[in-house]
Amino acid sequence: MSALPAGQFFPGQSVLHALDARAKLLGFFLLLAGVVCAASLPAYAVAFAAAGALLALSRLPARAVLAPLKRLWLFFVLIFAMNALFYERGDALWSWWIFRLSKAGMAQGANVAARVALMMVLSGVLTGTTAPMEITGALNALFKPLALLGIPAQEIAMILGIAIQFIPTLLEETDTIRKAQIARGARFESRSLWRRAASLPPLVVPIFLSAFRRADDLATAMEARGYRGAANRTHRRARPLRRADWFALALCTGVCALHVVLRVCVAF
């Protein structure tokens, strides 16, 4: 694919690259929780400042991280419209059939659009500074307590690990299949919805066939080597979090707490 996919990892030496993946993932969830709380202008100022600071600290190419936002402009218009037109509360400025435009609805629409944009930037920074395998490792570590509830956490982590390893291969395969069908005369660029829908089977059916073929090969190989389950596997001992990781976590907690305070104290 000549266009860079969203969520691409960029190797680098920034402060954020050096942090432990578990700390980054936890911090990311804390900041997300903060963003979900945001509902006032000061809160959004804090959130955008935090996202901007992270982007600067990561030393990632800003254009690459922000590109998905640009590509999804239609999506933003849609979520704004959906909220603006279907919001139940507030005085209606205009209404027709099931649509109902209101000031409160528009505010809600802007809210959602801003949250989504912030979350995309945050996750762009996370995936840009953390290699996919590190993310799985971190998820794996964070999932561990689930085993106490009777959930087969290690099996799930193994399935997730295999899933992540399959992603690049399947992406490449998808690209090849798409090109092969185009070379045979398939057209994916049509404007009409119906034509576009009809162009999907030649793409999707072979993708599933080859994905399942790979799954079959891998499962056969695992069974041949006597694989029974993930529970008895040994894991690399995780190293403890360092001071910088704790500091980053504390900062994220602070931002999150600030958001909660702003949510309670400041009206829109």
Partner: peptide, 22 residues
């Protein structure tokens, strides 16, 4: 392409070969 057998998807051979002539 390499391993072109991966692009087959139709229900019958004849339909699959016809695909490019659509």
């Amino acid at each position: 392409f390499q391993y072109p057998e991966c692009q087959l998807f139709e229900i019958t051979v004849a339909k699959d070969v016809t695909f490019g002539l659509k």
